[in-house]
Write a protein that binds this DNA or RNA. Sequence first.
DNA 1: CCAAACACCGTAAACGTTTACAGAGCCTTG
DNA 2: CAAGGCTCTGTAAACGTTTACGGTGTTTGG
Lengths: 354, 354
Amino acid sequence: MADGPTINTIAERAGVSIASVSRVLNGLPTRQETVRKVMAAADELGYVRNAVARSLKSRRTHQVAFAMADVGNPAYLAMLRQIQPVLKAAGYRLVLHSTDAVVADEIDVLHSLGERYVDGLIMSPLRVTEAHLEMLAAARAPVVIIGSVPDGTRVDNVRADSRTGVRLAVDHLYSLGRRRIAMVNGPLDTVPGASRGDAYREALRDLGLPYDEDLVQIGDFYRAEGGRAVAELLARVPDVDALLCANDLIALGALDVLRAAGRRVPDDVAVVGMDDTDLAAASWPSLTSVSLGSAERGKAAAELLLERLQGGDREPRLITVPPRLVVRASTAGAAAAGYEGASRARTDSTKEEA
Amino acid sequence: MADGPTINTIAERAGVSIASVSRVLNGLPTRQETVRKVMAAADELGYVRNAVARSLKSRRTHQVAFAMADVGNPAYLAMLRQIQPVLKAAGYRLVLHSTDAVVADEIDVLHSLGERYVDGLIMSPLRVTEAHLEMLAAARAPVVIIGSVPDGTRVDNVRADSRTGVRLAVDHLYSLGRRRIAMVNGPLDTVPGASRGDAYREALRDLGLPYDEDLVQIGDFYRAEGGRAVAELLARVPDVDALLCANDLIALGALDVLRAAGRRVPDDVAVVGMDDTDLAAASWPSLTSVSLGSAERGKAAAELLLERLQGGDREPRLITVPPRLVVRASTAGAAAAGYEGASRARTDSTKEEA
DNA sequence: CCAAACACCGTAAACGTTTACAGAGCCTTG
DNA sequence: CAAGGCTCTGTAAACGTTTACGGTGTTTGG
């Protein structure tokens, strides 16, 4: 299997030096005759420049990594969908890392930045540990974090405002007359888990509702897990009339279990998800969900990173994307569903901001 | 900003040659004392090997590309979800290309293989043109194609059997008593569009049903497009009693439009999708869909590629993944839905099958 | 007609590794 | 004690580019 042609091969065939070949290929000023010879030789040989050698010399790989917990989670997918075209347009390739939310894997990704196989990194960690912060401080390439990071961390940061998001959801349920509003959350040691849990408590307090520990159920951010959590919850507090789920997958699990248990949604139990993924619009019944702006966050993160890659230094920036409540059938019944279904437009009842 | 340490820095500090450093770092036999000195120096300096330089020398990037039409399409996502862990386990990074089904972009990806920034490529083209085949024949790195490719093409190939898949769907609808079975297809110049269209015709013939051109509607593989196509179809042939949609997105569009038109699903019109994506299980009503084994195809493709990357040469292989009909409410009514809803909760959760 | 200016080109070094080769030191053995 | 063999290490070349620098040949101007 003959090795591919290099600029040496071309130089030989065209009877010029490799420097001239390189100049021609990079469009630097060169005599017409030389250009012609080099181009001809390159064409005949089917030359393609070697990206690795180029990167070694130029210290740029034109690759950017995106690291997230789980490729299967539609919220990350929404980010990915926005990140991809932005990077592509700027001439960057996308390297995808799925860390399964394992801290060691995330640290690994940060560490591997030192290998310089990418020019920058967008990361959306579920947990942010001391180790994360240390690695971030020492990172050898620009990093943008999607998700909250302690104040003062010197890193570009794009956040959702899940606090306000939770409040939108709880207010909505309250305004529908629900008073036994349960929360089905993910692990409390994750960033979203913690903040959504806190926000739930606050929102109840502000509405003058009592905080009842029995109404809080911790599971994991997956459908099956969500279902299990809801089953436990129903057994413990049968009179629950609304479920606030920490993401759409949990909410889908909730719908599965409620259906199996013969509870009508939303008549008996109203359900709200978070993230407003495609699944929410497609589910049965369609799911009221708090959009935390995954797509916007992805786009913003990609743009921040590009800015830093292209521009020079600047202070780290923090961008917060506002949430939006999208009302569908799982809280508002068939009326909302019909509208949603027919128009496919977003019935976003964005309320007053917090 | 000081440049990171290289093996030269380490060699200097440890008082040995760069060859020794390299040997230590790669675990080649070396005197204990030297190992100690090198390791100490590397630790103190926080050395991380440079992946680019390594690749240049070793001619291996430990990267693999996956090119597909659209990150947003859940069928590709299912593939991605399987491909990712297989590659990761083997120590490969994943470079993601989204080609928007633009032929020029796909050719570009094939061409860029010559740049040697990846060791191999998994590609799932919507169309396979002459240009594709030429580039494939000349490809400078192993390629696995997901999707059908002309017989005799010398390339590893993983296919769905959409022919049998379509037949399963048509037979199912027929057995439910439907006789005006329409097909809502994507463009006929795409590989899946063409084969699903053909298969539909054949299946009708084998059942002794007439082929009625009015019952075929061409749109595109997206939800909104699918909806438009179905609207036209309904206007033209109001007595249609079943829709076979060429993918789940089209089917979701169909559900939207049927609902808006006041047709009951499945009582008035039964709907079948293809690809059995997560959306099918979550939709309203849940969608009967033909699984074409996206996940299995992704896994098989990744394994084929790894085999070729690690092992030596071998004849190109062809793997065909059998389809499966997953019956849900959109054809079988509420009974199936209840059953499905409860049971899918287990199988669909993203985590456990990985 | 000579010098200076200019346009173009080739030589060589550099990017950070891996690795073939040979040299140095030491041990064994006849 | 000399020779051969071992083990370990250093030198240098190579991977395929880009680019600083200096050299050559031509043009231009005085």
